[in-house]
Write a protein that binds this DNA or RNA. Sequence first.
DNA 1: CGTGAATGTCATCGTTCGGCAACAATAGGG
DNA 2: CCCTATTGTTGCCGAACGATGACATTCACG
Lengths: 232, 232
Amino acid sequence: MLKQILIVEDESAIRDMVAMAVSRAGMSPVHAGDVRQAQAAIAERVPDLVLLDWMLPGTSGIDFARRLRRDEMTRDVPIIMLTARGEEDDRVGGLEAGVDDYVVKPFSARELVARIKSVMRRVSGEGEDGSVEFGGLRIDGPAHRVFASDQAVSIGPTEYRLLYFLMTHPERVYSRAQLLDHIWGGSTYVEERTVDVHIRRLRKTLEPFNKDDLVQTVRGSGYRFSATPQTP
Amino acid sequence: MLKQILIVEDESAIRDMVAMAVSRAGMSPVHAGDVRQAQAAIAERVPDLVLLDWMLPGTSGIDFARRLRRDEMTRDVPIIMLTARGEEDDRVGGLEAGVDDYVVKPFSARELVARIKSVMRRVSGEGEDGSVEFGGLRIDGPAHRVFASDQAVSIGPTEYRLLYFLMTHPERVYSRAQLLDHIWGGSTYVEERTVDVHIRRLRKTLEPFNKDDLVQTVRGSGYRFSATPQTP
DNA sequence: CGTGAATGTCATCGTTCGGCAACAATAGGG
DNA sequence: CCCTATTGTTGCCGAACGATGACATTCACG
């Protein structure tokens, strides 16, 4: 059965472009110009993934995302947000609403498809309400907080996003470039070394809880979040 | 093999600046002042990425982008558009044409190079390295890890590549030259004896798990990875 | 404004890794 | 049984890589 992708986007040009990309990737696109149409489509069939524009006429994308998370039927459907450049700051809010990933406009068909596949590949790990638990760490998505063995961890915004991404994609190596793409956003320009620094800061905040060895270095390849420790 | 970047831009000043940045980043720039020249260059060699000015004499950049996408030969070549401020609204059209990213003039050399790398990374990017299992050993490609009977094995980068190659091509003899080609890459020049050393190191890391006899010497020919032990 | 937190960048330091050569060991043919 | 080609082993050195601390800048908030 073909994977069905629901595209909620008011600009028809973008919608068509996305639909084209999706169907060329062997998935079945369904169009919706606003939230009403989207709900009608969902009533028809619950899609396998939702591409959701941030700005929509009437209900905003993020409100709709929250609504999807609230409904039993659609709770586990992954959501990818389409945001314009400059709206990136609202990411944290999106994470709270249980959004799985962001793609910043302008984006290429190629990138979008890659993100869709990446998100769909990750079925496991994620709890109901967008909270994640792994290796003795727990992220409470809605509350935007991190706990290590029920102790609250004080953590900065970027470290939070980094940790969130790693915890939702564990046991897998990511290069610095990939981390930049996923956490900083594909269209911002940052040095690759910056990743090192934030990895360092993340480790430092996890250190008091002895969870810093969850963040592992893979020399020549990148970083990995894993429960089984590095064997040196 | 150097990555070749085709620069299609009519203003020679910008072209030179871009070419400078590109070659300083270790890539090989090729110039084209208009679409005709660009096509000639492509006929010569298909570039690894195209930097395309939005406004060109004759055919516009976006038409050229569409043409590149239509042609089988150039379908997968990523394209970055160079646009002037104010043309940003036309982006959607460009995205439909399959453009991978935009850089808005005026841009810095560093930003451009970063974008190029990001796009190229993405294209070759999310390589879904499969997992391999053979003779009690298991390689988790995405995690970049080796397990011997579910125990994590600590292994260096080159040993990892060597093991990965051997495990994906078992029961077959490879000469040192062949191993050099496949693992080191055809463009590097290394002594053949170096293979011996790394075979040794690989055996050493497999030794604690009693898996070192999977790597077998075929005197006069090379090495082989096999589940059935050597008959001495 | 002023202040502090957050973030990106840079320079430096220590470690690891890879390549090589020199030597030891072994096999295989005559 | 010996001799030689081939392979195994080890130590060393330079280059590459990642970690880290310090610094500059920006941003939000009072």
